[in-house]
């Protein structure tokens, strides 16, 4: 499976759009590409393993605090069927063990992005979205930090302070 962070609320239907339409805000807000690439994380369809994706996302180089987060999970073969190709790249997370789980969907064009958006919308509607609250994310990161799984020096100082308040 592949997981992608989204904003769940942006995928809810709007009164001014047909019921099954995908909002443009969902595409531009949750599927922002860089160099025609889109970042995703490999995972199993298992809550504990999904937590590893949350952990990776919560310990990125720009993270300054903890927030409630949504991830959507999609089967890899569905992406292949949509003609989307992928490339393994090292993920930007302060948890070294999780870096190799990162993949980029590459060479995306409008057609492929639309196909991807439709797949994600189906996943959202069939509840393949997992939300972790701010408190749960904080616990995940704190536990990983206490177990020595996080390279603290790679975290932003603001986030590091929250993990080691006495330091």
């Amino acid at each position: 499976m592949l997981a992608r962070k989204i904003n769940r609320a942006k995928w809810s239907p709007k009164a001014y759009l047909p019921q099954d339409a995908i909002r443009a805000d969902a595409v531009t807000g949750c599927l922002r590409t860089r160099d025609d690439r889109l970042s995703m994380w490999q995972c199993e369809d298992d809550p504990d393993d999904l937590d590893q994706v949350f952990l990776a996302l919560a310990t990125g180089p720009l993270n300054t605090g903890f927030d409630t987060m949504d991830i959507v999970v999609i089967a890899e073969n569905e992406l292949e069927n949509a003609g989307v190709t992928r490339e393994t790249t090292l993920g930007e997370t302060a948890v070294p063990a999780l870096r190799s789980r990162h993949v980029d969907l590459v060479a995306l064009d409008l057609e492929k992005l639309a196909a991807l958006a439709k797949l994600l919308a189906l996943c959202v509607r069939s509840s393949h979205v997992k939300r972790r609250t701010q408190g749960e994310i904080k616990k995940l990161v704190t536990d990983a930090h206490n177990k020595g799984h996080i390279q603290s020096e790679e975290l932003k100082e603001e986030l590091r302070r929250q993990l080691t308040p006495d330091a």
């Binding site: 807000g29 990125g60 993270n63 409630t68």
Partner: peptide, 8 residues
């Protein structure tokens, strides 16, 4: 810019 979870 959109609001990103956990990022100022």
């Amino acid at each position: 810019e959109p609001i990103e979870d956990g990022i100022t």
